[in-house]
Write a protein that binds this DNA or RNA. Structure first.
Length: 278
DNA sequence: CCCCATGTTCGACA
DNA sequence: GTGTCGAACATGGG
């Protein structure tokens, strides 16, 4: 499930425990989620204090005293929970941090997620400081978007939007939502999007991210019926704007839902000049 | 048994 | 370098 807003929601589950000291770390080395984890560092969380939480796209970073940083990714099915101190590990609980008041649980049934731990006394680990701009910040400009599309002029927009190095946090449903609101076909090549369409896409990327955060990140509310979201996997789903049927197709390697009635092919965009030849 | 899944990475190939 | 495709990872749900 986790995209931008869901990741924020899960990260928030641990926030009430900021300031608490970890009394015990429970985990099982050898599980896939620890495939690149510095295990001694992870065990070192024992007796340290949880001091900070931040997210970036689909990634979470928890800061601990002693210069330790816990870096989590939820993959396809991961989640975080906060439970009572008496919490006993259930089937896919791969990591539990026990404080004197609570249990902080990382759960991932498919193990596509990842748990890593770093030592860095001088603030966040270096990789974290080099992450690209988040789509909700001023650094995510129309020009930045235009450059990305120009450099991938022949790739379908859907595939481009899924790339975390450009659109951190955007996943399958957000990409579909963005393109649907923009009225652009998901298979439209990046190079076709210029001028007003570029402005439109830029606005919608930010809008979907902000809407998702507002609706999901704190309370995990149900997305309203005027989003594409509640209609997209429904068999016989209907576009809430046009009332016309939605369709599903694999684009950019992922099942994509769109509304053919309002998301047009590049050729149908009036006055679009041809793509530059490579 | 079949198919599908809100993610990422890797190798082969045009 | 760009882009596509399929497979792999591991599990659960319909």
């Amino acid at each position: 499930m986790p995209e931008l807003a869901e990741v924020k929601f899960y990260a928030n589950q641990w926030v009430p425990c900021l300031g608490q000291r970890v009394e015990r770390v429970r985990c099982q080395e050898g599980k896939r989620v620890f495939r690149r984890c510095d295990f001694p560092a992870l065990s070192g969380l024992d007796s340290e204090i949880l001091q900070s939480m931040q997210t970036h796209g689909k990634q979470m970073l928890f800061g601990f005293s002693g210069g330790l940083w816990l870096h989590l990714h939820l993959g396809m099915a991961g989640r975080l929970q906060r439970g009572p101190r008496e919490t006993t590990p259930s089937k896919h609980d791969h990591l539990i941090l026990y404080t004197n008041e609570a249990a902080l649980v990382y759960n991932d049934s498919r193990m596509f997620g990842e748990i890593r731990c770093y030592r860095s006394v001088d603030g966040e680990p270096p990789f974290w400081k080099r992450l690209p701009p988040e789509v909700t910040t001023p650094a995510f400009t129309r020009e930045f978007l235009g450059n990305v599309l120009r450099r991938h002029a022949r790739a379908p927009l859907k595939a481009i939007l899924l790339r975390q190095e450009f659109f951190p946090g955007v996943g399958n449903w957000m990409a579909d939502e963005i393109l649907w609101r923009s009225g652009i076909h998901p298979a439209c090549p990046g190079g076709r999007v210029r001028g007003v369409k570029l402005s439109e896409l830029h606005r919608r990327v930010r809008e979907v991210a902000e809407d998702a955060l507002r609706v999901i990140a704190t309370d995990w509310g149900d997305p309203p019926d005027d989003w594409l979201f509640p209609h997209r996997w429904r068999d016989g789903g209907v576009c809430p704007r046009t009332g016309r049927p939605l369709c599903r197709e694999v684009i950019g390697g992922r099942t994509t839902c769109y509304s053919p009635a309002r998301q047009r092919w590049p050729e149908e965009l009036a006055g679009t000049p041809p793509l530059p030849s490579v």
